[in-house]
Design a protein around this nucleic acid. Structure first.
Lengths: 149, 149
DNA sequence: CTCCAATTGAGAAGGTTTTTCAATTACCCG
DNA sequence: CGGGTAATTGAAAAACCTTCTCAATTGGAG
């Protein structure tokens, strides 16, 4: 069990929630993945740890963890809603078009840009959501061919 | 019928598609709306013009218009996939948290920011998707109260 | 006006998400 | 270490959303 997994589990307990097999499984799958996972993918992973875990529980777990901001939904251009563990603070995801490997980045320097938009539109801007799509270093190297595993 | 509606209809014809009641209805609903509309909202609007129009047709129409880049999907934080007429060029939407009124903005000055992220991550960035959320001028004025119509 | 391919509505099928409820589990307490 | 209790769960069903199929209709070219 890696550090991140432990942190999330502690956080769960700190909020008064029980640490169950299903929650452990979802968190482990996400901390162990380099890309956002869908509800179905999480279910498949969880069942490898305990085949009794049901799909419904995954939905509930994902809802809970999202609510606690321990994981975050990641919209992809096509299929909506994968999930990834949330680093503390405000981050965004950059997802590889070929292999779907995702990295988080922060230091979100949108401040000036947002100010300008606010001035132009008259809106008071309260939140933003940014997803980037690209091609990761590995897939650039293996150019033109099939996605990297 | 406003200019924008006419433009879109002409565009349809130019691509060899028929201008049908259903397509007219969807386009009119979107050109007449200040916020992105979901498939269901489009269906409801279309039925006000002709109750015989079915939901399936709305799906097909939305797919066609999206394919032609005459309308664009707009992901919102909660419910995925509203649609809005596409202004030419690359734009993003800023949606009011209270009344859901949306404005488009362009002149997307993310260039420098994206370069920096590319340098940090090694990814070649091929696309981005930005949604802003805020409170529009009208709702700011009517502060604290119910959403404006 | 007529004809033909494109388009449509209805119904059914496929998929995803939510609800309900009794059985099970995690963990607090002794 | 067990035992009690409330939170959590799995299964089944319901609700919902999206796609498919096919016969009937419609737009627009001629």
């Amino acid at each position: 069990m890696d550090d991140h997994e432990q942190t999330v589990l502690d956080d769960l307990r700190a909020h008064g929630y029980k640490v169950t097999q299903a929650r452990r499984a979802v968190i482990r799958a996400l901390t162990g993945s380099v890309r956002p996972l869908s509800v179905n993918e999480l279910h498949a992973q969880a069942q490898r740890m305990n085949p009794a875990i049901g799909l419904v529980t995954i939905y509930r777990t994902v809802e809970l963890l999202t609510h606690l901001d321990l994981i975050r939904p990641v919209h992809l251009m096509d299929n909506c809603h994968g999930y990834a563990v949330a680093s503390p603070g405000h981050t965004h995801h950059l997802v590889c078009k070929k292999c779907h490997r995702a990295v988080e980045f922060d230091g979100c320097d949108l401040g000036l840009f947002l100010e300008q938009v606010a001035r132009e539109t008259g809106y008071r801007i309260t939140g933003h959501w940014l997803e980037l799509e690209g091609i990761c270093a590995r897939c650039q190297a293996a150019d033109g061919s099939a996605p990297q595993p």
